[in-house]
Write a protein that binds this DNA or RNA. Structure first.
Lengths: 337, 337
DNA sequence: CCTCTTCCCGAAAGCGCTTTCGGTAATTTG
DNA sequence: CAAATTACCGAAAGCGCTTTCGGGAAGAGG
């Protein structure tokens, strides 16, 4: 492959000139530039990224951190959608993504330390627990950072309009005639969970609907199993809801399962509406009506906010709230008389 | 953060000694090592990875390439399972994963070029089209590489036992009394598709079952829509199958949809068995019986084969075939009399 | 007491690249 | 034609680290 030294030797110019030719400096003549480029092509020359980074202090790499909670890792469909679109957007600008191990040759370090070690140009953190000490540390650092699906005053953030989403859901159920609307919620330590709860309460209040005892149930961390358990608790109530707004699609799947196992029918007996619009819910029975989060736009926005900071070379704190919309499918029906 | 120069100044030792202390060379006394480590901790010293890589020619990074076909990218659930377990396994050894953009500051280069530029220690390629020129180039290179879900004589590979999987599926249907067994296949240009076809043909032959006209239908690249279309073609046959072995779970979802839309019932009218065991098929109706690919083990095996080559510093060509198993759920039933 | 090891430490070169700064040759200007 | 630009090129320092090699001091052996 060779280095610029080889190129210099081969062309007879100095390494300075070679480097300049390669980097489009204007103080090399077209003729020598052409010669050098030609030679570079002939010997399959490729610049060494490490040497470049060392010298320029720019690594063209973005560190990715995501929640390992629930053992989902990279398997979480919502996370994946976001990271995929984030990847596309940053890749266009020439950045690589690096998924950091926290294990530096057997000395394990924090994510921040690792990212500093790797000298990434920026960091994106996705789907995380705001209480996570690691995340806090990242947010306190001076590396450009964007946080997805979580709010913070100290760094750029992007998340869906969860309040509005919850309102959409509740209003939709209301228009179908439902008055006894329950909410199976995500844990309040997760921003998205808390916001949807807030939106639910707000919407109910606006509609002058009381939140009956037991109608707001914390189902934890968005898994199918937790959703199912939560629904079972609702089904034990004397005063059962006719509709339930579930804070996540995966939980909603569990919810439907519980309802079915109880011998009831969705949506004829109970309507359920989810949140996220992950792909698979189109294929379950009944197809799930849900609030769609636009993962493409979230990813793009995150990329935009991060790139902005990286070029500005200063910490910005912009907040981007991505609109959501209702996707009507088959899991909600007018209330039975 | 500081460099080793700062550490040297602070402790009064030379940078040589500092470096040695940090890297556990034995020709520094315990006392000075302690001092240096202490000072390092005090000033939050972290070694610069680029400088290290430049000097040692080891980057502790593994390049990841995956298929962009079908626009799935990182969203493909099967891919994700594998990469997640691969990540875990390599992370334990201190490696980071880098998802390469092919856009080096607006000059777009091949994956191989990019990986060379980044000086990765190894490459993993997943779920790819064997015809892809980029993949071919990677396989021809001299960088340690492991290929998943594809066969090749020139590099280490790991894939599921697709022949056996197909056989398991066909035999299972046979035992349920089915004799008219069709196969909705993946494209033959995909190794997994081809192997499952072969397994299907083999199994049918072993059971002395004829493959009736139109019973082997190419459904392309494993999407829900393609599966659905393929099933529609089967349903147009005068001599309809009583069971169908589908080469992928996503396609199977489309298959079931087509059958239902045709007014038939799964499994009472037609039995369906899938392939992969992606998470969501537990939640569709009926729950899909399938051949389970062990993504965890595939990822681990891939990591193992790659790490092996990286430490051996030579190209190896081991082949690892991961066993599969039948997961019985509710989409298959005894044949109607 | 002298020599031979052993134990520690540091000078220096090298990894591959960028960038400042100065210098020469060619060109323009008055 | 002299002076002032302009165009082009290169020496050298620097980025932060590793590793070879040699040398001084201390301890061991005779």
């Amino acid at each position: 492959m060779g280095t610029i030294y080889d190129l210099a030797k081969k062309t007879g110019f100095s390494i300075t000139t070679v480097s300049k030719a390669l980097n489009n400096y204007k103080d090399v003549s077209d003729k020598t530039r052409a010669k050098i480029l030609q030679a570079a092509a002939e010997m399959d020359y490729l610049p060494n990224a490490h040497a470049q980074s060392l010298s320029t202090k720019k690594s063209w790499a973005i560190g990715v951190m995501f929640s390992e909670a629930n053992e989902v890792g990279m398997k979480h469909p919502f996370f994946n959608g976001i990271i995929e679109s984030f990847r596309h957007a940053t890749e266009e600008q020439g950045y690589d993504l690096i998924f950091a191990s926290r294990n530096l040759r057997n000395r394990d370090m924090s994510y921040l330390e690792h990212f500093k070690h790797r000298a990434v140009d920026g960091i994106v953190v996705i789907c995380s627990d705001r209480m996570d000490e690691q995340v806090q540390e990242l947010m306190r650092s001076d590396i450009p950072i964007v946080v997805v699906d979580m709010d913070s005053a100290n760094c750029s953030v992007v998340y869906s309009d969860n309040i509005e989403g919850a309102r959409l859901a509740v209003n939709y159920l209301y228009e179908l005639g439902h008055r006894k609307i329950a909410h199976i919620a995500g844990d309040e330590t997760i921003d998205a969970g808390a916001a949807r709860i807030k939106g639910y309460e707000l919407a109910m209040q606006e509609l002058d609907l009381p939140i009956r005892p037991g109608y707001l149930v914390n189902a934890g961390f968005f898994s199918v199993g937790e959703g199912k358990q939560a629904m079972e608790r609702l089904l034990e109530l004397d005063d059962q809801p006719t509709a339930v707004f579930v804070a996540g699609d995966q939980m909603a799947i569990g919810v439907i399962e519980a309802i079915h196992e109880h011998g009831l029918h969705v949506p004829n007996d109970i309507s359920v509406i989810g949140y996220d619009d992950i792909e698979m819910i189109q294929y379950i029975t009944p197809k799930l009506t849900t609030i769609r989060q636009d993962t493409d736009e979230i990813g793009e926005a995150a990329a935009e906010l991060l790139l902005e900071q990286m070029t500005a070379k200063e910490r910005l704190t912009e907040r981007r709230v991505i609109p959501v919309r209702l996707v009507e499918r088959a899991s909600c029906a007018p209330v039975k008389q």
